[in-house]
Design a protein around this nucleic acid. Sequence first.
DNA 1: GCTTTTTTTATTGTCTGACTAATGCCTGCG
DNA 2: CGCAGGCATTAGTCAGACAATAAAAAAAGC
Lengths: 276, 276
Amino acid sequence: MRKPIPASASTSATDPKSTGSRLKISPARALRGDVQHNAATHGHTMYQGRLHGALAHRLGVDILRGTFKSGEILPNEIESSSKLDISRSAYREAIRILAAKGMVESRPKTGTRVTERERWNLLDPEVLGWMFETEPSQDFIKSLFELRLITEPAAAELAATRRTEAQIEQMRSALEIMKRETLQSETGRRADLDFHHALIQATCNEALASLSSSIEAAVSWTTRYKARHNALTRDPVPDHERVFEAIERRDASGARWCMESLIRMAHEDTQRTFSQ
Amino acid sequence: MRKPIPASASTSATDPKSTGSRLKISPARALRGDVQHNAATHGHTMYQGRLHGALAHRLGVDILRGTFKSGEILPNEIESSSKLDISRSAYREAIRILAAKGMVESRPKTGTRVTERERWNLLDPEVLGWMFETEPSQDFIKSLFELRLITEPAAAELAATRRTEAQIEQMRSALEIMKRETLQSETGRRADLDFHHALIQATCNEALASLSSSIEAAVSWTTRYKARHNALTRDPVPDHERVFEAIERRDASGARWCMESLIRMAHEDTQRTFSQ
DNA sequence: GCTTTTTTTATTGTCTGACTAATGCCTGCG
DNA sequence: CGCAGGCATTAGTCAGACAATAAAAAAAGC
């Protein structure tokens, strides 16, 4: 019983329900419910934890999917929060999160408006996650893989020249797990991420690392999606092995080339899955 | 052994102010003051606008520069906000902003701790801006230019094949302004940004655009820095012109090559400025 | 003595309702 | 017609209360 209602036991007449919004399932209820038991509401697979986080998630997805369009101003704080049946503070914190990701912008008197898409931080890991909540556009997936195709082969190249023994070992053991588990299992996908993570670390480039880890995380959504739909995909292990071997023997251009081909394959698989 | 004393750690960390202003200028006052008239407080060139934004800025810079180290737990909300003489809500909103950028993480009972550097969103435009508030490490600058060297030539290549006439015109006029104004003036730097912006748009790749615009913005801080210090730098216009011409004649590999050289030059200039 | 369960407790999370400040808009004045 | 000042709307800030959570400590059970 999560809803203890303000104590003011004897409560006077001031009761917001007088608005009669009783009729609908208050959207808020849904939010809180979702928070509690990962239910799905109208395509929103909801989130864990704090209310402001859940709300930011929800609004973020709505913006990304176009329910709120760029330039549109959302209803004012009082209205929004009371319609959602949450406090203004929680609502505001959610908005701050969105604002931190460049998706909305608030000013007194004007209200808070959705900014132009150009200004979203599309590569923020959380935003990327929200993006894959609903099937993202072909265009976007293409962009993402194009970007991967630019950065990751270069990363592999750097890794080949800068990697340490420890990193090689990390990659080797991740690869081992991948071989056993495939991408069908959670631990298999986890190993895939570990592999790429070790590779990224080996580049000794913070900026590149920050970028790649976001992208990898996003791409792993697609992988999970593929696994869920039993899409038939090439076995990714051999590709990974070739990359690994090239890096192990410090073969920079070999690593680049193998990584390039790995990504091309992944892209093909992904396209086949999404477009049908 | 929990870490009880971040507060005392900050003993003077908050404000090693000159002379005995240790007194009662509440750090908050400073914050508010800064907000009002862009004053500088101990290297914090302060920010405009909302209190939570200013505070997020301030804390963000402190984290980036290591005043709060990874893993450290900051003093609890009550203590922090009252020490800063601001309301808990404003403080919390600031924290939410930082959390949205992956820099802190809060949980009940535990408090809010600074996450490991690996998890910062280093490429968030705001974070990047904070980074250049204080002279960033050589290593980081190197990373950034290395990343630029990976992405931007590729972007130029794509732009050369996909650009529209309108984009060419935008680039041409930006270049025109750059020629007249140089990077010493604000409008000159603005034109530089416009040039790169048009180029990025021409790639037809959202993800790449999002990345590049962050980086460009960051790099423009270094440009401003250089201008302030009258560092002698090569004239960047000829480099830009070569890139422009290659894109205009749809010469993909030419564009790639010219862009690569442009960035190399910029990197050299930057290094010379910062390291002296 | 060790593990498991319960209680305590510190901290963030949420709520409420009021007041402040910025700013777009409108109105009246020149 | 333009401009200045006031008005209304909205985010921003504030204070203080209570709830939920999870770590740590204490108690219970074996």
